[in-house]
Design a protein around this nucleic acid. Structure first.
Length: 392
DNA sequence: GAGGCGTGGCG
DNA sequence: TCGCCAAGCCT
């Protein structure tokens, strides 16, 4: 409560600036004060965004929005899906590749799922790629236009609460409450929310709903995220540069990094297995496709044991794709979201036909396969340089 | 609703 | 080195 008083105080000190765009969302008893303070916050934040916003390949800058240039919902959607749990830097090159190959939703709908998976390889969370393609198919079939409401957007595959709100706000200028990890961190600090983040989601959402301005809601959403990404960072936040430092309870209290409060996490178990790199005389490598669902669903892999297998002679021979002179070629490690993996890599030369369910990938095709990073590590251990892009 | 689902960067 | 975590969604 004392934390909210901080905002109230700020609001009353500057009530004239707080007047724009806030009243309609007031709901609870103290929401009038909160929305007044939040209008003030939105105003300061937008002023900061005008000066310090990041230029991103999918973003329309405030000055261009002011000229009447509108964002392309397709590009907003594509970028938001790519950005789910993924850093901006990782997304940039993938975004450019995708809009180059598939400049609109009809083009993406006309592509094969296989080509989409190949283009997504390395970005992670591969169900996103499958949902992306399914969503493009749906939208194209319905005339090529994305729904312009949160509820309509949320019905599409791969679009949840966050992404629906982000598209509604950024592409369609709707006053949606866009709440992602950045926003949760910023709000946790603004109000020094001591409740663990996992239990504070609803409270944070309500606070954001009070803050969203009627004018420039899309810029407001992006400003909150830019602030979280560049100023209000998880560690060592740059509070001296923050446009909201005078409004921020955590800064005043002296320990912004303490927020958001999180619960201790479970340990990651270690799994082990073996991987088998068969190399033909012409450099082709034996691969297979994983099941459509589950871990690395629909992606391509090197033949492996199960990932709980003991590594000994008997297990290895039985699990190899064919009997042969399998020689140790090193060990690779990889950490997934919920477990760590160590794979012993074995290698052999062969000229046999591909076993059922397997295929040979020619040397110059390997870099274009839908190989997740863990599988590129396996192949690199056996054949250094094999997965790097080849000059034609 | 809790857990499955990738990857790379950073302090 | 290693834990944390980044514009979450789905079941």
């Amino acid at each position: 409560m004392a934390l909210h008083d901080q905002t109230r105080k700020s609001a009353s000190q500057d009530s004239s600036k707080a007047a724009s765009g806030d009243t309609s969302k007031a709901g609870s008893g103290d929401s009038k004060a909160a929305s007044g303070g939040s209008g003030h916050i939105a105003s300061r934040l937008l002023g900061w965004y005008d000066m310090h916003h990041r230029d991103l390949p999918w973003r329309i800058a405030p000055r261009d929005l002011a000229r009447g240039i509108r964002p392309d919902p397709y590009r907003v959607w594509l970028s938001e899906v790519m950005l789910q749990q993924t850093t901006v830097e990782a997304v940039k090159s993938y975004f450019r590749t995708f809009v180059g190959k598939w400049p609109d939703v009809e083009a993406l709908a006309a592509a094969s799922t296989e080509d989409v998976m190949k283009a997504w390889a390395g970005l992670g969370y591969y169900s996103r790629a499958r949902n992306l393609k399914a969503c493009a198919d749906l939208v194209a079939r319905q005339g090529g236009r994305f729904p312009d409401t949160e509820s309509g957007l949320k019905e599409l595959p791969g679009i949840g609460a966050y992404t629906a709100a982000a598209i509604a706000a950024i592409a369609f200028d709707h006053p949606a409450a866009v709440v992602d990890g950045n926003v949760e961190r910023v709000v946790s600090r603004l109000f020094s929310i001591a409740t663990p983040l996992s239990e504070a989601k609803a409270e944070i959402r309500a606070l954001v709903e009070c803050m969203v301005p009627d004018k420039r809601p899309g810029d407001f959403a992006q400003a909150m995220m830019d602030l979280g990404a560049t100023i209000c960072t998880p560690r060592r936040p740059r509070c001296m540069l923050c446009p909201l430092r005078e409004d921020c309870s955590a800064t005043v209290s002296g320990d912004p990094e303490h927020f958001p409060v999180s619960l201790p996490k479970a340990e990651k178990p270690l799994r082990r297995g073996a991987a088998f790199v068969a190399v033909r005389a012409d450099g082709a490598v034996l691969l297979r496709k994983r099941a459509e669902k589950g871990l690395l669903g629909g992606m391509t892999e090197v033949p492996t044991t199960g990932w709980t297998a003991r590594i000994d002679g008997a297990t290895t021979d039985a699990a190899a794709p064919f009997p042969g002179d399998w020689r140790p070629a090193g060990r690779i490690g990889h950490v997934f979201t919920h477990f760590a993996l160590e794979l012993d890599v074995f290698k052999t030369a062969t000229d046999c036909a591909a076993p059922a369910g397997h295929f040979w990938s020619l040397a110059h095709e390997i870099s274009g396969e839908a190989l997740p990073t863990v599988m590129k590590k396996v192949i690199e251990a056996a054949i250094p340089g094999a997965t790097k892009a080849r000059r034609v």
